[in-house]
Amino acid sequence: MNRPSRPPTCQLCRKSGHNASQCYHLASYAATAPSEEHLAQAFHAQCQLDPNVPDWTSDTGASSHMLPSNSTLPNATPTQGNQPSTITSFVSCLNKEFAIKDLRKLNYFLGLEVTYTPHGLFLNQSKYTIDILNRAKMLDAKPAQTPLSTNANFVSAGDPFPDATHYRSIVGALQYLMIMRPNISYAVNQVSQFLHALTVAHFQEVKRILRYLKGTIAFGLHYRRPTHTTLIGYSDADWARCLETRHSTYGYSMFLGGNLISWSAKKQPTVARSSCESEYRAMANTTAEIVWITHLLQELHALPQERQTILCDNQSAHFLTQNPVSHKRAKHIDLDYHFLRELVAAGKLITKFVPTKLQVADIFTKSLPSSQFCASRDMLCIGPPPFSLPGDVR
């Protein structure tokens, strides 16, 4: 007897928690996707760094760029841009080939909720957060002030956790939640490193993250209309953070016009022999991200006139970027040294020192006390919605 065929699934939908029927619709769309010729007629040009972003430049020199739309999906892909006439032409071209529906302003997309404010946008995932808490049976848990306690230590030794599938399901959901909650990136990064060797202590830390989310369900990212277009990156590292491998943890955050556009919290792949080395490697990784963003903005004809800036709270690492004589002490990080130093020498990049209390990327490298954590969270423009809801924690 032949078994009925099972509809294929989508990795994005699996991570975001969408059901199988929605994945089936995605698979159905793939079978009827527009041909390359149709897309070529609609797109005209594509960004080299991100082929999902069409790019036009009109005869007047005006630039138009947006995220393409296909509304045959159960949750329509958003279409946004800076020239309504170009968007209308794009949608009309696609409408000739297959049925689409214009849902107007974006309000909800794959768990992401969009609220329009007089000053910009507010993006959050409150419904998805409630779903995670329900799945973990922690909707009635006591809220916590921070995702991790300051004395949290992660090691492989300990009593094994019996339900590995439940642990991995919750952690996977938390990884998707980081899209609009970068302030939990460090905590989720730590609990994700032990998916192969779970312990009861690790699950207690996961529950701590969920308790923090319980008290900040409606929190999200605020995006305000910028008054400037400066691109600034904050770079930080915590030397030898891992107790078992002594690898350092590094993180960065990128702001364009004062709005957070990119961030990361990762463990460095090699052991650093000094805090200066770990900080300098973090700056090199931050620089690579800034270079990529700069090239993308250049393609979109939106490159800021000001030089890009990296802020670091380590005096020694900052000194290395400014003083070529100190190269003798940097031979063991030779490639990172030349990559960063050449950009600074060419005047394409500025490095500055920033005090630790103003180091936004600190939240991506370690568990912070409550007051410092809240200050960093505010600097990331993460907070409650711009309106009051029953039960909100402020």
Rank of each mutant, 00 (worst) to 15 (best):
M138H: 03
E113Q: 14
P147R: 14
A141Q: 02
K105S: 10
T115S: 12
S85G: 05
N75W: 07
G111A: 06
Q80P: 01
D140Q: 09
E97S: 15
T146L: 10
I100P: 02
G120P: 04
G120D: 03
I132G: 09
L123N: 02
Q80H: 10
M138I: 10
A157G: 07
M138T: 03
P78A: 09
C93H: 01
S85I: 08
K137N: 15
L139P: 00
Y128S: 07
L67V: 13
L133R: 04
D140G: 07
I87C: 12
L73S: 06
H119P: 01
A136G: 13
L67F: 06
T115G: 03
F90V: 07
S149V: 05
G120L: 00
F154Q: 00
Q125W: 05
A157E: 14
S92T: 11
T117E: 06
Y108M: 04
E113R: 05
R104T: 07
D159W: 02
I87W: 02
N134P: 01
A99V: 13
T88M: 12
T129V: 05
L148T: 14
A76I: 04
K142Y: 06
Q145D: 14
N75D: 15
N75L: 11
M66I: 09
I87D: 08
D159E: 15
Q125S: 02
D102P: 01
N124R: 03
S89P: 01
S85D: 14
M138C: 06
F98S: 15
A144P: 10
N153F: 08
M66P: 01
L133E: 09
T77H: 04
N124Y: 04
K137P: 01
T77D: 04
S69P: 02
N124C: 12
I87T: 12
F154D: 01
Y128I: 06
Q145C: 14
E113P: 08
D102M: 04
I100F: 10
I130S: 14
Q83D: 13
N107V: 08
L103D: 07
K96G: 09
A136V: 01
V91N: 09
T150G: 00
F109C: 00
V114M: 05
Q80M: 13
L148A: 07
P118Q: 06
N95S: 15
S126T: 05
L110D: 06
T129W: 00
L73W: 00
L94H: 00
N107F: 07
N134V: 08
P147F: 02
V91G: 01
R135D: 13
S89C: 06
E113Y: 03
A141L: 00
A141W: 00
